[in-house]
């Protein structure tokens, strides 16, 4: 039995902000009618969380649920809990027009922490971080690749990208967080 590995296990950097690869996270895509009772119940039962509002992410004890598109959620759990959660969701949604897929291994997850986190992200993303309270999620572009970013705390953000570009993302974030590049845009 082999243990799965994330894209850049243990990668850490400290510059204008701290950048870290977050290791394996459980990630499940759920597509379906987000307004339906069936989806709401399935999500509630599997995660304990309600379906979040548009462009919001709700954090719970064991899971977080992110709004990705009008018919798509991303459910975040422990990596070890994915199979169980997928099974729960599939069972609850049997017979519904809904699709559940494990995408944990398809992504890489990074965290950025520090007061300059928004400045560093603004160097890569065409996003207004002034209008970005904790619990906001934004799917966007980080330089030349797709990314989803959410704010977990005042000075902490999580960024998800495709696994194949994990190294690019790492190089990007650590380059933009290099000391000397202080901006002071977001204070």
């Amino acid at each position: 039995m082999s243990e799965p590995v994330s894209a850049l296990p243990g990668a850490r950097y400290a510059g204008l902000v701290k950048v870290a690869e977050a290791g394996l996270r459980g990630m499940i895509v759920l597509r379906g009618d987000l307004a339906s009772k069936a989806v709401a119940k399935a999500v509630k039962d599997a995660t304990g969380m309600p379906v979040p509002e548009t462009r919001r992410i709700a954090f719970g004890k064991e899971a977080a649920v992110a709004w990705m598109a009008p018919d798509e959620l991303l459910i975040l759990t422990d990596h070890a809990a994915v199979a169980k959660t997928v099974a729960k969701l599939e069972k609850a949604l049997a017979g519904e027009f809904a699709t559940v897929a494990d995408v944990s291994d398809a992504r890489a997850v990074f965290t950025l922490t520090g007061v300059q986190a928004r400045d560093v992200l603004a160097k890569a993303c065409p996003v207004d971080f002034a209008d970005f309270p904790v619990g906001t999620i934004r799917r966007t572009r980080a330089a030349q690749v797709a990314a989803a970013i959410w704010r977990t705390e005042e000075d902490a953000f999580t960024l998800v990208c495709f696994r194949s570009v994990a190294r690019y993302m790492w190089d990007l974030l650590t380059t933009l967080a290099r000391p000397g590049g202080e901006v002071g845009l977001y204070r």
Binding site: T54, R55, A69, P70, P126, R141
Partner: peptide, 12 residues
């Protein structure tokens, strides 16, 4: 109009 995000052309 789907997600309400005002974004620049490069995101579309």
């Amino acid at each position: 109009p789907h997600c309400g995000t005002a974004a620049e052309e490069t995101e579309f």
